[in-house]
Amino acid sequence: MFSQHGPSLRELAVQALSSVERGYDLLAPKFDHTPFRTPDSVLGAVEEELKTLGPFGHGLDLCCGTGAGMDVLRTVCRGSVTGVDFSAGMLAVGREQVRSDGSPRVAWVRADARALPFGPAFDLVVSFGAFGHFLPRELPGLFAQAHSVLRPGGRFVFPIGAPPRPDSAWYWALLGFDAAMRVRNAVRRPPFVMYYRTFRFGDVRRELTRAGFTVEHRALPGFGRRPDGSPRCRLIVATRGSGTPRA
């Protein structure tokens, strides 16, 4: 499915009927051949924006998967780059694919993003395409964790796309996917949390502010604007102040 190197429909079904962790362990060897991987166009646009904000010392890729964002961090960080994910399978693929020689140093850590095993050691935290795996009620804790691992003045940066319009096919496709996922999780355990319509710009900005960040956003060039003039893709730049990190 997707390409000759991608997963089959049967493999995707087995993944969807597993837990999030087990599902991604199974999908990991073929993950980069699916549309679920963050597109290079998005990675490149974020990298260019980070260059205007950096350079940075130590970077963390939150929910790094197979490491698509690690090469972005390696470009803008001088000290070290760390990828954290709770799927051992995704981390194993990342270790094979991302160069770890030279500078900056590269490390891979298996951990839950909701309970990070780090102190305030990073100058930059990024995340790409992972937030659909967290329920809205989990955002305060997730953002508090990102805040807690940043040094004063550190940035938490990630792209967020504009929701599709109700008159588009994508709107109804994503609505249908989320509805099917809710039915699946209502009748089967463990749940597989993956929702495309729960990570909303207004909610994200509010919860980041509550976590102690100063939040700004900028349009990512190259993705254009919607008919109402709003950008199709934004970059959220949340800066940690000098106060005590949130737990």
Rank of each mutant, 00 (worst) to 15 (best):
F2K: 03
H5Q: 15
G6S: 04
G6T: 07
S8Y: 01
R10P: 06
R10Y: 09
L12Q: 09
R22I: 10
Y24P: 09
Y24T: 08
L27V: 06
A28H: 08
P29M: 12
F31E: 06
D32L: 11
H33G: 11
H33D: 15
H33E: 13
T34V: 03
A45M: 04
V46Q: 01
E47L: 10
E49Y: 00
L50V: 01
K51L: 06
L62R: 04
G65F: 01
T66R: 04
L73M: 15
R74A: 13
T75V: 15
V76I: 04
V76A: 06
R78K: 09
G79F: 09
V84T: 10
D85M: 08
G89E: 13
A92W: 09
V93P: 12
E96A: 15
Q97W: 11
V98W: 02
V98P: 01
D101C: 14
W108A: 02
V109H: 03
R110L: 06
P117D: 14
P120I: 13
S127I: 03
S127W: 00
G129Q: 06
A130T: 03
A130G: 12
F131K: 01
F134R: 01
L135H: 13
E138D: 10
E138W: 03
L139E: 13
L142P: 02
Q145K: 03
S148A: 11
V149G: 06
L150Y: 02
G154A: 03
G161R: 03
P163F: 07
R165I: 11
M181K: 00
V183F: 07
R184H: 06
R188T: 14
P191L: 03
F192C: 07
R197L: 08
R197A: 11
E207H: 13
T214Y: 10
V215G: 08
H217L: 06
G224D: 15
P227N: 01
G229A: 13
G229F: 08
A238T: 00
A238H: 00
A238F: 00
G241V: 03
T244L: 14
T244Q: 14
